[in-house]
Write a protein that binds this DNA or RNA. Structure first.
Lengths: 342, 342
DNA sequence: ATGAAAGCGCTAACAC
DNA sequence: GTGTTAGCGCTTTCAT
């Protein structure tokens, strides 16, 4: 079908337009230094011949690739949201993105390796699971921005949400509603879990509720939340903050199954029973069925921060702080309501 | 930090190992034609110098890039599932993937343009929204595989699920459970909607239920399902097949809000009331809170089919049919149960 | 088994 | 403004 014919090169365009390749290059790139008439003619020929620049050759020759490598995980819905913001932010400063996915059978190492061969100028890693030492080694080769986690290594930049603050927002909200017995369902050693736990503890103490601090082991899955709920059932608190949304739905489901009031569907607000606040604002938490009060990360700010930081490192700009910390915000939906006495 | 030092090239490795660049290339590529001792030495040097091949130069020189371009939409969770399968399938036949995302502010045209410059050998498009004419023009340049939609154009290959069959599976299941008054909530002009509608109608007629065929306008969102539910309330059927899972949850929520029995949480099976079957097996449909009976697409088969077809076109193998149609399967969860008389 | 030379398609310096 | 000359880092003949 498209077998024989060699694809159109810049040389073809130049020949057809009767100019040198270099001049044609200038026109195609939109660079200065070509006459208006020439410009028009070359463009017309390129159009007519269906010319497409060859990024490999272009990138090979250019000193700068203006390419940002991004590693994301297909299992994390939030990562694709972030991708949207990243394309916006990168485009705004004239950079391109090359994507490399982590899947259940394609690990982070492989994903990073691919980008290294593509000669990206910097790497932006979503929730990287690599060891700090590996990240440090990588950062010795090119600028590395780790997102959604902390990295205690001076060579690696970090852009993340203030998770401690996120949990505080959740607790403050519940205290405002009159809750005192507030339990935290933990995320163990998962990224962000320590910060979220600490935010809960800090806020409880700040509200003089230090004596009521109670942390139940949990995790990132629905099962983890369900198990935590079982442990809560004998002596349920009036409110719960959960490590993430998925765990929160598991918890909600068990509470509901045991006759505890459930979140109001259809946007209704919840009254009485156990209030639940999740974390992440995962897409499903918006569903009328779930309607979960949760803590949201600021996607646009995270993306913009990461690109700004990557570009600063590439272009050698001095940066103030190694960590860029973005403020979270509370999304109040149906699973949190006033505490009822008794 | 990583400023001054030029990165290690194959020439550096060759010089250090005391061989020619050509020979070093052979070793690095793992090609035949190098002595065992040489091979070991070159590899050791490459390792020590932290050599990384430059994919741009490599691809530029090679006749074949063995690169498959993939366009996916960040808004569609199913697309990331498919990505996983595609990496597996491509890796198995020695091809690489280059990804290009469609986002709310990055259209399909742009996404495709990027891949064209990357000199992919074929394009795999997830649920492409481009007009048939544009796809045909593209297919004149390189092999194009459209997934999850039909394209009535001989130059474009298609790999999709048999959506008609999917709806039939749903109806068969409901009829098995004793349902007769089964309504279909439609997807209008959305991709796949016509097939799903037809499958519903065919199956109803096959079960001699042609007189009970009832199609309600719907859509792809939760709201669409909710609106459809409102229309159903005055005279509810015993079962519903819905265009997709999101719409189905919207519908379920309204039915529940009006006192109709709701799906059993925690994996319980549903008894009596309105049975609901969704479509897509979206990740949230697995949640205990939702626990939706639905029709699943076979991710692995779709991915394998797309890669096999792309590679066949690239390598000039003859193919039997232009369309590769994959069999869907029914996932029975909690929102479908026996019809109760009366 | 190894090396020399050519060149993939393009951009960057430098001439004119 | 425009053309000429050199490569970018690699793979690929073709010698040896």
């Amino acid at each position: 079908m498209q077998s024989g014919e060699r694809r159109t090169t810049l040389a073809d365009v130049a020949a057809e337009a009767g100019v040198s390749v270099a001049l044609a290059s200038i026109v195609i790139r939109g660079a200065a230094g070509a006459g208006a008439a020439t410009r028009e003619r070359v463009l017309e020929v390129a159009q007519r011949l269906g010319y497409q620049p060859d990024s490999r050759a272009r990138l090979l020759r250019s000193v700068r690739t203006r390419l940002l490598g991004v590693v994301f995980d297909v299992r994390h819905p939030f990562h694709t949201d972030l991708l949207t913001g990243l394309y916006d932010a990168a485009g705004a400063v004239g950079y391109e993105l090359t994507l490399s996915a982590v899947t259940p059978r394609r690990d982070e190492r492989t994903a990073i390796g691919g980008l290294l061969q593509d000669r990206c100028e910097a790497l932006i890693l979503f929730s990287p699971r690599s060891r700090t030492a590996d990240l440090a080694a990588l950062a010795a080769r090119l600028p590395v921005v780790a997102m959604m986690r902390t990295v205690r290594q001076r060579a690696v930049d970090v852009v993340r949400t203030d998770d401690t603050r996120g949990s505080e927002l959740a607790v403050d909200h519940l205290v405002d509603l009159g809750h005192r017995r507030i339990v935290h369902i933990d995320g163990g050693a998962l990224p962000g879990a320590a910060e979220r736990r600490r935010g809960y503890q800090d806020a409880m103490r700040r509200h003089d509720l230090g004596d009521l601090i109670r942390v139940i082991p949990g995790g990132s899955g629905e099962d983890d939340g369900a198990r935590a709920a079982e442990r809560l059932l004998p002596d349920p608190p009036t409110a719960v903050t959960v490590f993430n949304d998925l765990s929160a739905t598991g918890l909600l489901d068990v509470l509901r199954g045991h006759g505890h009031p459930v979140p109001g569907g259809g946007g209704q607000r919840f009254h009485g029973g156990v209030s639940v606040v999740g974390y992440d604002d995962s897409s499903f938490s918006r569903l009328a069925h779930i309607n979960l009060t949760t803590v949201a990360q600021d996607v646009a700010a995270l993306a913009a921060g990461a690109v700004r930081r990557a570009v600063a490192r590439i272009e050698g700009t001095d940066v103030e702080h190694r960590e860029v910390v973005i403020e979270p915000r509370l999304i109040i939906r149906g699973t949190s309501g006033p505490a009822v006495p008794g």
